[in-house]
Simulated assay, not measured.
Amino acid sequence: MTATRPSDDELSGMTVNERLFACGLLDAWDEAAMNRDRPQMIALLLQTAIERDQAERTTDAVLKNPTMYGF
C-alpha cells in the first residue's frame, strides 16, 4: 500500500505536528531539528502546505528554544 499525502485542504485544519505526521515527515523533522538544520526544517514544513514565512517563523521558534519543543 502506498501512502498518499493529504490534500492542502485536509492539512489546513491540522497542527504542525499533525501535518508532519500525516505527510510522513515527523522523523525527518525530528532529525533536522536535533541537528539544528534550519534549511531542512523549512523545506520539510513547506511540504506540509505551510507558507514560507510561517515555516521560517516556526523553525526559528524551535531553534530559539529547542528544549521547549523537546529537542
Rank of each mutant, 00 (worst) to 15 (best):
F21P: 04
N17I: 02
T58F: 13
R36I: 10
D8F: 00
V16Y: 06
P66H: 01
D9M: 00
P39T: 02
A22N: 03
M68D: 14
K64P: 14
V62G: 10
A33L: 04
W29H: 13
L45Y: 03
L26Q: 13
S7G: 12
D27F: 01
I42L: 01
S7R: 06
D8Y: 00
L46G: 11
D37G: 08
Q54P: 11
K64Y: 02
R36W: 03
M1H: 07
N65K: 06
F71Y: 14
Y69K: 11
M14E: 14
A55D: 03
I50K: 05
L44I: 08
M34R: 10
R57D: 12
G24F: 07
D53A: 12
A43R: 02
A49Y: 00
M68W: 09
C23L: 08
A28N: 14
Q40E: 13
T48R: 15
C23Y: 07
G13A: 09
T48N: 05
R36P: 09
T58A: 14
A33S: 02
D8M: 00
M34E: 15
A3R: 05
R36V: 03
I42P: 08
D30S: 10
D30V: 03
T59G: 15
N35Q: 14
P6F: 00
V16W: 09
L20Y: 04
P6K: 04
P66V: 02
A33F: 01
N65Y: 05
W29V: 13
T15L: 00
L11F: 01
E56H: 04
S7V: 02
N65A: 12
T58W: 05
K64D: 14
L46Q: 01
L45F: 08
N65W: 04
R36A: 04
A28D: 09
M1S: 09
V16Q: 15
D37F: 09
T48Q: 09
R57L: 01
V62T: 04
S12W: 00
G70K: 10
T2S: 12
R57P: 05
G24W: 00
F21Y: 09
A28L: 11
G13T: 12
Q54E: 15
T2A: 15
E51N: 06
L20A: 04
P66I: 03
D37S: 15
M41S: 05
L20C: 09
T58H: 11
L63I: 02
E10A: 00
T2H: 12
P66D: 10
L63W: 12
P6I: 04
L20I: 03
M14L: 09
C23I: 04
R57E: 13
L45E: 08
I50Q: 06
R52F: 11
L46V: 05
A43K: 14
L11N: 00
E51R: 11
T4M: 01
M34F: 09
A32M: 10
T48A: 08
A28Q: 14
N17T: 12
E51C: 03
L26H: 15
L11Q: 00
V62H: 09
M41P: 11
L26T: 08
I42A: 08
L11S: 01
P39L: 11
T4V: 02
E10T: 00
A61T: 12
P66K: 12
T15S: 13
K64V: 07
N35S: 02
